[in-house]
């Protein structure tokens, strides 16, 4: 009887602990969601009235009422069009090399360690690197191409690591089956491993690209401009991007610029949401059951 009641007490205590932790976790998520809601609410209230077709199709102006994001929006798109594919191709091939071809020796380990470290380097350092290599070294000037390549370097480590994880998750039985049929390493990689790993790779890439979308510091360092009243006509064109335009408006003395900055933020957030939505869609579409 006594033993039974003691056991019961322990059980109750554990139950209580369980409830406590549940409460703690719930509070944590409420705090972060509340912060997000407050932020989004404030921006939507401020910016939505200014989010008009004119705002999307006008060039920047010294009058807030006339200013728009046409050149910034086009610049952002041009820049993502180069960064996305370049980073994807180079990143995936690097990961494939490291996972499938490289011998497991100290050199590979060193490379691996450095790639992981690179993912944590502050973005402004990449800006300085881009300034030296692309803008001055290769003479690309302050072009979309120079900006996009700088950003490619910035997000490459993230894509490499994500791809490696996705490749590692491919069941070994699939590779064995492929080899058993007489396939070479390359055939196995391109026909078996990569297709299976693709959802993970795409998710990693898209998330990395949306990070590049919001970065300002490296682009300011390489000398991306603030006032541009023409659309990029090619990779060598000068450009501006949304975060730079928003940054400029936020620091203006006239209060009206704060409002259109909020409208700009809404546009930037929508693009990011769209990209992240695409990541989820692609992940679900390509995730075939592997048995």
């Amino acid at each position: 009887m006594l033993a039974h009641s003691r056991e019961h007490k322990i059980y109750q205590w554990r139950k209580l602990k369980d409830t406590l932790f549940k409460g703690l976790f719930f509070t944590a998520i409420v705090i972060s969601l509340a912060a997000l809601a407050a932020l989004l609410g404030g921006i939507l209230m401020k910016g939505l009235p200014y989010l008009t077709l004119d705002f999307l199709s006008s060039y920047p102006s010294r009058f807030a009422a006339k200013a728009g994001i046409k050149s910034a929006l086009a610049g952002t798109f041009a820049f993502i069009m180069i960064t996305g594919p370049t980073a994807f191709v180079v990143g995936v091939l690097t990961a494939v090399y490291l996972e499938e071809y490289a011998k497991k020796n100290w050199l590979t380990n060193l490379l691996q360690l450095n790639i992981a470290n690179l993912a944590g380097v502050p973005s402004i350092v990449y800006g300085m690197l881009g300034m030296v290599i692309f803008v001055r070294g290769l003479g690309l000037g302050r072009s979309v191409l120079a900006g996009a390549l700088t950003m490619t370097l910035l997000i490459l480590p993230v894509i490499v690591v994500a791809t490696q994880e996705a490749i590692k998750a491919v069941p070994v039985a699939l590779r064995h089956a492929s080899y058993a049929l007489g396939a070479t390493t390359t055939q196995t990689v391109f026909r078996v491993v990569l297709p299976v790993a693709m959802p993970g790779i795409l998710t990693g890439t898209i998330l990395a690209v949306s990070r590049a979308l919001g970065e300002t510091a490296p682009l300011i360092t390489i000398g991306a401009l603030t006032y541009v009243a023409f659309l990029p006509t090619g990779p060598m064109s000068e450009f501006t991007v949304l975060p730079i335009q928003i940054f400029n408006w936020v620091s203006r003395p006239q209060a009206a610029f704060q409002d259109i900055a909020a409208a700009g933020i809404i546009v930037l957030l929508s693009i990011m949401l769209l990209l992240n939505g695409a990541a989820i869609y692609l992940r679900n579409k390509y995730r075939k059951p592997v048995e």
Binding site: Y59, G223, E238
Partner: peptide, 19 residues
């Protein structure tokens, strides 16, 4: 920026950029 904005109205083919 103000100068570039007004100049563009007269000379739309000159690309003035301000950083």
């Amino acid at each position: 920026e103000a100068m570039a904005e007004e100049f563009r109205k007269i000379n739309p083919d000159v690309k003035v950029t301000v950083g």
